[in-house]
Amino acid sequence: MDERANRPRIERTYALAAELRAILGKLKRKLREHGGRSDLTPSQVSVILRLEIDGPVTVSSLARAEGMRPQSMSAIVTSLLDVGLVSGSPDPNDARQTLMSLSRKCQKFLKEGRAARQDWLTTTIQEKLSVQEQEKLAAVLQLLARLVED
């Protein structure tokens, strides 16, 4: 098939991709709105999520994982320590090192935020979509899952 014949299909696919990105962006903002207020910077959020996934690590390891200088990471970690979202403990393998981990306060903050977002989304789906539309949404989710499969 030549490029001219395929052009409408390519344009439609491009438009679908743009619309999907816009809608997912709006959904992400709505979820953030309903997940509780946070004054955290994107860098602080990234560190918290990395600690949640990787578990306790040193500031140097965090810096490497986030692709930044240890001094910059140290400033981020210090700000999180100051508000009680992370804590440090001696590394059992090297007492000269400190392992940073999420505090109980942070774990509670994450859990409550996720629960609030889940509650909002569940309620919104129930209130705005009929049973048939919810079934269509389930089918769309299967398609979206295929888009992100490796």
Rank of each mutant, 00 (worst) to 15 (best):
E52M: 03
S61L: 09
N93E: 14
V83E: 12
I23E: 13
Q71F: 10
L110I: 14
R4G: 03
A63N: 04
K108S: 13
F109A: 10
L99Q: 11
S89M: 12
S72R: 13
L121C: 05
D54W: 01
A5K: 05
P90G: 07
S87A: 11
R117I: 08
S89L: 08
V86T: 13
E19C: 01
M1L: 00
P42A: 06
G36N: 06
T123V: 03
P90Q: 09
R69M: 07
E133A: 07
E11S: 10
D150G: 07
L27D: 02
Q134M: 04
L144G: 00
I53Q: 06
K128H: 01
S46A: 15
D39L: 12
P90W: 09
L51G: 02
R32H: 11
A145M: 12
V83K: 15
S101C: 07
A75V: 04
R117T: 08
I76A: 01
K26R: 15
R7W: 07
D82H: 04
L51H: 06
K28N: 08
V77G: 00
V59F: 03
E149G: 03
L147E: 05
S101H: 14
V86F: 07
T98I: 15
R9T: 13
G55N: 02
S43W: 10
E133V: 01
S103D: 03
G35P: 03
L49V: 03
V148P: 00
L147S: 04
L85C: 04
A116M: 14
G84I: 12
L16K: 05
T123Y: 02
E19R: 03
S87P: 00
T123K: 15
S89D: 08
L99Y: 11
Q132G: 01
K28V: 02
E127S: 10
